[in-house]
Amino acid sequence: MLTLAPYEFGGFVVAAGFLGDTPIFALGDGTVRLFPDGAERSVEVHQGGLLAACRSQDGAALITGGDDGLVRRTAVDGTVETLAELPRKWIDIVAAGPQGAVGFASGRNAHVRLASGELRDFSAARAVGGLAFAPKGLRLAVARYDGVTLHWVNTQAPAQELAWKGAHARVLFSPDGKYVVTTMPENALHGWRLSDGQDMRMTGYPGKVKSVDWSARGRYLATSGANAAILWPFFGKTGPMGQQPLQLGTRSDQLVTRVACHPGEEVIAIGYQDGMVLAVRFADQQEVLLRRPGRSGISTLAWDGAGARLVFGTEEGEAGLISLAG
């Protein structure tokens, strides 16, 4: 049985997820909404707007950045702690690393805050488009103009530069650490195989790729930006090179805005620009409607750890908790 508990927040839903079993929503108005035991609790986290959010790696807290220049950590009990401050900067990129490290960026500034409170500076000469931590070791990828720089956070070891002309935004490592992939404004992905620096171009999108997620065990990289979820295979020796991607949840007239892969199975949740959410199984492409179209596009979508529930949010503040019980 499928159930949907709808919420109405009235403001852009920047991120939704779960802290343990508790659904949590980070809103553009600066608040974080928690739903322990189904009842809503609102916490004022940023004075102005909340621009970016991600879950800490231990899953115990939400890390957020705002246009008040603060990086804050909100725990499941609603307590809020300031991790860092860049006065008057809009912090629109945050990333959670191992050992309690937190990466954050604004414009050309990029920093890592270690669990000890110590700050490391990884600013770039041009705009920082995204940050990501490697799956092993305390290593930070900084997406920048004309490529990506890989920094070792705790050592003086020289940074590794991955070059490709143009602007790079979101960046991510493959779960096995073999590949780095970025999204680019030319409606494309760029990838590098770290062993030999081999470049990969993944193109053909009608829109910008804004949402990317690895499927269970890192077999596929699922992406938004087309009228279907596009999933690039990464399990062969050469990754997606020369391979056709899977296309799931194809619709004739709506672009995919968000993708979220099931944590254990080859199933993907797909959010569209009209607010619809589908779940699709890779093997037979069987589709299940999770939410009908609403007033605005899906802006965030996430599974819980067990893969039994999903949360979503939209640009206009509609949101919900979907349970796939039974």
Partner: peptide, 19 residues
């Protein structure tokens, strides 16, 4: 050529639409 920072700022502002 485009202004990358402008794209980013407009995107950020849209999270506060209405203000």
């Amino acid at each position: 050529t485009v202004r990358g920072d402008l794209i980013r700022t407009v995107e950020n502002l849209m999270k506060r639409k209405g203000s």
